[in-house]
């Protein structure tokens, strides 16, 4: 799989990454190389093999429905780039 400039632009947009125009060829080359490596997977027939998402065969543990967290807004917002009236601010969202 060789990725073209348009592919890189599309992926970068999906991932919300600003990529400088002059870096795109390098990313295209690097990513194509990685995909080439990855495509070695096709050497093995995996028909009928159940996908494995976790190393351990465990089931999800369930939590008791209890409120354990208290209001820590001041602490949490101390590290926020921009807040006002307890809200996180972002550039205008258009629906």
């Amino acid at each position: 799989m060789t990725l073209e400039r348009a592919d890189i632009e599309k992926i970068a947009h999906l991932a919300r990454l600003q990529i400088d125009a002059e870096d795109i060829p390098l990313y295209a080359r690097n990513l194509s190389g990685i995909l080439e490596l990855v495509e070695q997977m096709n050497r093995v027939d995996t028909t009928g093999v159940e996908p494995m998402a976790h190393p351990l065969e465990m089931a999800q543990r369930l939590r008791r429905d209890e409120v354990t967290e208290t209001n820590q807004r001041a602490r949490f917002q101390r590290i926020a780039p921009q807040v006002e009236a307890g809200l996180y601010l972002v550039p205008k969202v258009i629906e």
Binding site: R63, D65, E66, V67, T68, E69, N71, Q72, R73, F76, Q77, A85, G86, L87, Y88
Partner: peptide
């Protein structure tokens, strides 16, 4: 009472971000 993946309260109408852990 609490959220699906955390122990923060689900009560409606609290001050903004006071129930976001």
């Amino acid at each position: 009472r609490s959220k699906i993946f955390s122990g923060a309260s689900t009560a409606y109408g609290a001050e903004p971000n006071t129930q976001a852990c």
